[in-house]
């Protein structure tokens, strides 16, 4: 018999694919953009879920990587648009695969020292130090005028992908959707691997992990870096969706929202981030349509979920997670 969670997961994945297709058919392109937003936010949260869900690393600074990814897209595209080379004579580019590669690499390189320092601490210290690192990058971005400072960085046209017309909403959605599925496969692969087993043990009992000869620090650091890279990729797509790399992508509210997505959906579950992102964008759209103060109600809902429904949406629909 197929587990109930699998059925719900399949429905969620198909639902996200169906909405833009139907929207396209009835000529409501706005819903395609909304679905793209869901896919990208879910991708960012899948990244965070590797550190937070599997490794128990409550990073309150993942906006840093989301923003770095966004700025990577913005900066490369700006240089390509103005036809001026960057530092060391490297040319800018408007090709998405190259931008993704740069976003992944830069996020990995930034996550290495941040992770190496932050992971020396744990618990509340880890939460606060990741927050502080993200703030450091945020303040750097708003006080560095070369790339927009507080005003952010606009992209004049959406970046391109070989053979696909990304300026149309549906092809761009499909790119984001494909990357989301890829990232979720990566998450499932990690969770089922020896590395994933070590990572989950590091969360549950790191002394025992050390006793079998695996250093928890290294496992956590690698997970943190992979997690940062996936979130950075989402950031690059987000900048392309809005054609804008904004310093607010780096703000601590963003870090909080990414955690919120995971908790709304269900922590440590493969489809938790997607369920959370769908719910979040749905709230944003419906409540935001009723009142400008929709975040007030989001706060109430979130409070209710944390206090009374700890498994999130998937916990409600599919019962307790099998992986403790």
């Amino acid at each position: 018999m197929i587990a109930r969670e699998t059925i719900i997961n399949t429905i969620l994945a198909l639902l996200l694919l169906a909405v833009p297709l139907i929207a396209m058919a009835v000529g409501e392109p706005f819903y395609i953009t909304l679905s793209t937003r869901v896919a990208i936010l879910a991708l960012a949260a899948v990244g965070l879920n590797i550190a937070l869900g599997l490794g128990g690393l409550v990073s309150f600074g993942h906006a840093a990587f989301f923003g770095i990814g966004g700025y990577a897209a913005g900066i490369l595209a700006t240089h390509a648009f103005n036809a001026e080379p960057m530092l060391f004579g490297v040319e800018g580019t408007t090709s998405m695969p190259w931008i993704w590669l740069v976003a992944l690499t830069v996020c990995g390189l930034v996550a290495l020292p941040i992770g190496a320092i932050s992971l020396r601490t744990s618990g509340v210290y880890f939460i606060m130090i990741t927050l502080a690192f993200a703030q450091m990058i945020y303040y750097f971005a708003i006080s560095w005028p070369a790339y927009g400072g507080e005003d952010g960085l606009s992209l004049s046209v959406r970046n391109s992908f070989p053979l696909i017309n990304t300026a149309k909403p549906l092809p761009f959605f499909l790119i984001c959707y494909a990357l989301l599925l890829l990232a979720m496969s990566l998450f499932a692969l990690i969770r089922g691997s020896r590395f994933g087993a070590a990572l989950q043990t590091a969360r549950q009992n790191d002394t025992r992990l050390a006793a079998v000869g695996i250093a928890p620090f290294n496992i956590r650091l690698i997970a943190f870096i992979i997690s940062a890279m996936v979130t950075g990729l989402a950031g690059a797509l987000f900048a392309d969706l809005n054609r804008f790399a904004s310093p607010s992508m780096l703000s601590w509210h963003m870090s909080g929202e990414l955690i919120v997505l995971i908790i709304l959906g269900g922590k440590g579950r493969l489809f938790g981030p997607l369920a959370g992102a769908m719910l979040y964008v749905l709230f944003e759209y419906t409540l935001g349509g009723i009142t400008e103060r929709w975040q007030f109600f989001l706060g109430l809902i979130l409070l209710g979920v944390v206090l009374f429904a700890r498994g999130g949406l998937l916990g409600l629909l599919a019962g307790k997670a099998r992986h403790g």
Binding site: G256, I259, V260, L302, R310
Partner: peptide, 30 residues
């Protein structure tokens, strides 16, 4: 609110108090 959070892990505390920020900020803007 807070009383229910003492036995919870830090993640729950962060989220619940983050929710309180949203409520207080938007509430006072109201």
């Amino acid at each position: 609110v807070i009383r229910r959070l003492y036995d919870r892990d830090h993640l729950d505390q962060v989220l619940a108090t983050f929710a309180l920020i949203l409520i207080f900020s938007e509430g006072s803007r109201w």
